[in-house]
Amino acid sequence: MAQSNDRQLDSQSVSSQTPQATNSTPPRTIEIRIPADAEWVRVVRLAVAGVASRLKFFYDDIEDIKLAVTEACNNSIQHAATSCEGDQLPLVIVQLSPYPDRLEVAIIDEGCFTGGVLPSAAPLVSPHEHPVAELHESGLGLFLMQSLMDSVEHSAGPDHTTTLRMVKYVREASELNRGA
């Protein structure tokens, strides 16, 4: 099948059937479970790139999704490191649901949320609005996720789990030309 050079041409191998979902019916979901260890995040990135490349995303959009999912995994891993007790690392679960017109991503960390303000409640403030001396070295993750994805929602579930859901829609070439 001929494709524009701007399209993602690299086809990563993913153990899933081609999605048969319509824009509204649930698709086959690909799930990846990793220990809450930063060493595993690049594996998630590879899988995300593989799944996203099966949809008609542009290359830059796939890179955006990879970065947003990385940030979400980082948050879960850091959260687990500070909140969870015991020797065994909790799991971070990444669910990828490829619809024809969008990719839905859920990142679930299990059993560690103990209350407080969820990150999505934080205001979206660009770091360039602060002088250099006042810039923080952390806290950009949520800003990036909100900037790169079409929607980001954070929720606390049963058993102290937290779920971050993100959606990225497939853009048409005409949208890209308009700079959308």
Binding site: L67, T70, E71, N74, V132, A133, L135, H136, E137, S138, G139, L140, G141, F143, L144
Partner: peptide, 13 residues
């Protein structure tokens, strides 16, 4: 990622 950006911010400061 943002962690890397944070490292560069720290080095700049």
């Amino acid at each position: 990622d943002s962690t890397g950006i944070g490292v560069l911010v720290g080095a700049l400061k």
